[in-house]
Structures are given as C-alpha cells and as structure tokens.
Amino acid sequence: TLKVKTGDFINGTEFINYTLTITGAEFSEIYGWFGDKTIDINNQSIEIDFFEGISENGLVFNNPQLNFYINNAFGVPMGVNFTGVSSSNANGTTANLSGTITDSPQFVRAPSTSQVGNIATSVINIDESNSNMRDLLAISPNQFNIALTAEANYTNDDGSDRNFVTTESNVEVVTEINLPLNVKLTDVSRDFPTGIEGFDFEDADTIKLVLNTINQLPFDGTIDMQFLAADSSVLKEFPDILFFTSAEVPTSGKIEEPTTNSSIVKVHKGEDGGYQELLDASVLNLVMRVTSYNAGEDNFVKIFSDYELIIQVGTEVNVNHEL
C-alpha cells in the first residue's frame, strides 16, 4: 500500500522499482496463451519383418491403413503434419507419404480449461482414399519412419480459448499399421537358399530332383533353381520351373480344395548337364516367383489363416554298375 499524506504529491518522473528473485520454483498448473509454435511430438522407426526376403515391387495390398491414436492431455489444440512419414527397404529405396493427408495439418483435439486432468483422443486414419499408402508398402519395406510435428493452437490462432499445462500433461501417440490379407502379387520373388556342401553321387549318371507341391493358396508359382558357389556366384541355373498352380477362386473368395503339381529337374553328366556344378556348389538356391490369381485383371485375393502350401523335395538317382 502506497500512502500519500495530505499536502504531499507525486510527479510524473517518480517510480518504484521492485526486484524479485524466485529460486526452486515449481508449478502444478499454468494458464495462458502459448502461441502458435511448431513442436516435435513423435519421432520413431517401426521395424517390419513381414516383407523380409520379398522382392521390391509387385506386392499390392487392398486398402492398407496407417492409423494414429493421439491422446492429448495439454490444453492446446494442435494440427499434426504427416509430411515426415516414409518407408524404406533393405536396398535403400525410400517412399514418402503424400496425398491429401499431407496437404494440410490434421486437427488434434485438446481438453478445455474446465477439463484439466482429462485426455482428449483423436483418431487419424491414413488409407488409399487420402494417401499413397500402397506405394509405401509396394517397395517391401523393412522400416517405417515416423517424424510428426504439430502446430500449437491450430484453428485457435486468435487466442480466444485459453491454454493450460499441468505437471501431468503429455501427448501419447499410438501407431497402428493395418495390412489386410487381401492382396495382389505380380511376379513377386523370394530366395530360399540351403547348404549342399559335400553332396556327391560318384556313380550316378543322372540325378532327378523331384518337386511336389500341394497348394491351397490363390497363387501361381515358378522357380529358378540355382547352384551357387561359396562366393554366391551362379554355377548353373534351371529357370522357369513350374512349381505350383492356383485353383479356381470361387465367389466366396476361399479355396477349399488344393491343387497338386509335380516337377522334375534332370541333372546329368556331360556338357551343360549341371552334374559337375552340383558337386562344386555350396548352396542350392530356389528363387520363387509368385503371381496371385487373375492379377493381370487387377484382381485381389484373400489369404485365410488355414491355407497351406506343402512342398516335398526328393531325388531319384540312376546308377550304372558294370559286372
């Protein structure tokens, strides 16, 4: 309280200066206007093993989804930018998210000043209707990179609504990748190597490698059989061997009866017979190439959990003995 006695006066050049020092201050709640700054709210990488060994390009999912569940306990509405979302694969190929989802920030709700201590949840769905999600998965990624930034007070730029923060305030981002097993495959390849060092049939004239398959999947498949040296160079290759075929897919979408197929690869002595290369090889590599049923007609097929593909590999050896 400043008291001015009768007869005293204060002129315009006088002032009072207070210096206040606060140390060890703590807060429980702060209210005010926090401005429109850009802040980092999530930066993570998600490892994906699903595509391991699958060739880049050729695998298309029908309406894959990337969903974000954002729980905001700050009294600050936000606009989240998704331009920092991308996928990458083992070959170093990167695909960046684009589409209407990245054209403008996506609104994230916030509790009001009468809801201190509560959480406002926002769900943001990214699919083929608002993005290029198919492109991000088409490269057979082994990693999703998610770097999200947010604009504080998005749609609240006039400051008419007060902001608040408490010691318990935080933003939690839960990311969900949804890959429906409704797919289209076009010449998708994958390697299946196995060691064969020490393989030897000294007296054999011809070796027949027999491949039997029982297939319930809606896929057609061929293989390239390769004999590889220790340095992975190809010593001998038998290309385009029919491996398995798809049954007709009924209107219900589910195949009940599997198809069977048998293929024989003859390896024999002599020029270009593959016998010596088989003896010299360290690895037998099967390069499988798969195309889904009617993929050329832009048809998607469903994959059911009880589908089976049974592969049986055997050998027949012709041996001549002189008596």
Rank of each mutant, 00 (worst) to 15 (best):
D205M: 06
L209S: 08
G195H: 03
G273E: 05
V234A: 01
D306F: 08
N91M: 07
D280T: 12
D240M: 08
T194M: 11
N182Y: 06
F68N: 00
V174S: 09
Q115Y: 09
N43V: 10
A150S: 09
R134T: 14
N170D: 15
N72Y: 02
F9S: 15
F34R: 07
T93V: 15
D191L: 13
F219A: 01
P64G: 05
L179P: 02
F50M: 09
S292T: 05
K302T: 10
A138K: 05
I119Y: 01
G253R: 00
L323K: 05
V76D: 00
Y293W: 14
R190E: 13
N96P: 00
E277P: 05
T83Q: 06
S252Y: 04
I311D: 02
G84V: 03
T259I: 06
I39R: 00
F82G: 01
L228T: 04
N261S: 04
E256K: 06
H321K: 10
N62Q: 14
T93N: 12
A90D: 14
I241W: 04
A95G: 01
R289W: 01
I214K: 07
T149G: 05
A95V: 13
K266F: 05
F9Q: 08
E52L: 03
P77D: 03
R190P: 00
E172R: 13
G314W: 13
G53Y: 04
L217H: 04
F9Y: 11
A150N: 01
G75A: 08
A73C: 06
A152M: 15
R109G: 00
E297D: 14
N132Q: 08
I10P: 03
H321G: 09
D127G: 09
L242P: 10
S262Q: 15
T38D: 12
K302E: 08
I119P: 03
D220L: 00
E29Y: 07
N125S: 13
I41H: 04
I30G: 07
K208L: 04
P64Q: 03
V283P: 01
V313A: 15
L148I: 13
S233I: 11
D200T: 12
D187L: 05
I177S: 11
F144M: 15
A150V: 06
I139K: 02
A120V: 10
L309W: 04
T166H: 06
L148M: 09
Q312T: 14
G195A: 11
I310D: 13
E256Y: 07
F243W: 06
F144E: 07
A295L: 02
T291L: 04
Q216N: 12
E56L: 04
Q276C: 09
T194C: 03
V313D: 03
G7N: 08
G7I: 08
S233E: 08
K254T: 09
S232R: 12
V174L: 10
L59I: 09
E197Q: 13
L20K: 00
T259E: 10
N57E: 11
I39C: 01
P64Y: 02
P218Y: 01
G270L: 03
E297V: 05
D224W: 04
S45A: 09
T166A: 05
S282K: 12
N63K: 07
D158Y: 10
F192C: 03
N96L: 13
F300K: 06
F107R: 10
V313S: 10
G195Y: 05
R289K: 13
M288L: 14
K302W: 02
V108S: 02
V85L: 06
D158T: 14
F164I: 05
I39W: 01
T94W: 08
N182K: 08
N130F: 03
